[in-house]
């Protein structure tokens, strides 16, 4: 993935601010990766290299962590994150059906992001709202009892918002998403 102009500086500045010129103890690696991802939305290679250097470990070791844990992503996420719960209760009452409906509607598979970077689709293990199964977490909101019709409804509610957000300040991830078809 090529970084766009300005992105490199932003990544370095973010990582520097978090590392704060302190040597990084190895057992702070995961909290630091979590913070970097919270700021940037993902873990760019450049960030992983800087963090590895600060902790005195090889870059491949940090890569190992980033690819081992579900939480970490190596690519910028979509603007909206759809997380379909695949906990036991949700699965038994149609979580799979909801996931397939999203996949069909968006033309992507779980774990992927739409080419326009508007949506990314993930499956998550129990979000702990089993009593409203099947559950989908749309950005930060929990939607309960999601049937295929409701899937359409959720996606429809985001339609036409592109126009509204144009003028807003853009995060690097958003810049990225518009630059890449």
């Amino acid at each position: 993935m090529e970084l766009l102009e300005g992105e490199k500086e932003q990544i370095l500045a973010t990582v520097d601010a978090i590392l704060n010129n302190q040597p990084l103890q190895k057992d702070r690696l995961i909290p630091v990766l979590q913070r970097v991802q919270a700021e940037l939305g993902y873990l760019p290679g450049l960030a992983m290299e800087k963090i590895a250097a600060a902790a005195g470990v090889s870059a491949v070791e940090v890569y190992g962590l980033a690819t081992f844990y579900n939480q970490f992503r190596l690519n910028p996420p979509g603007k909206h994150q759809l997380k379909v719960c695949m906990g036991t209760a949700c699965y038994m009452v149609g979580g799979q059906i909801a996931l397939e409906s999203f996949e069909r509607r968006l033309g992507i598979k779980e774990g992927e992001t739409t080419p326009d970077r508007k949506f990314s689709l993930e499956r998550v293990a129990c979000v702990g709202c089993c009593t409203m199964a099947p559950v989908v977490v749309v950005d930060e909101n929990v939607e309960g009892h999601v049937t295929p019709t409701r899937v359409d409804g959720i996606l429809l509610s985001f339609e036409g918002e592109e126009g509204k957000t144009r003028g807003e300040a853009k995060s690097p991830a958003a810049v990225e998403s518009e630059a890449k078809p």
């Binding site: 690696l29 995961i30 844990y69 579900n70």
Partner: peptide, 19 residues
């Protein structure tokens, strides 16, 4: 950071150590 196996005791401790 989201790995079921980290509930296992030795795995949990390793993950706290940054592994």
């Amino acid at each position: 950071s989201g790995a079921f196996v980290c509930g296992e005791s030795s795995a949990l401790v390793r993950s706290m150590e940054g592994k």
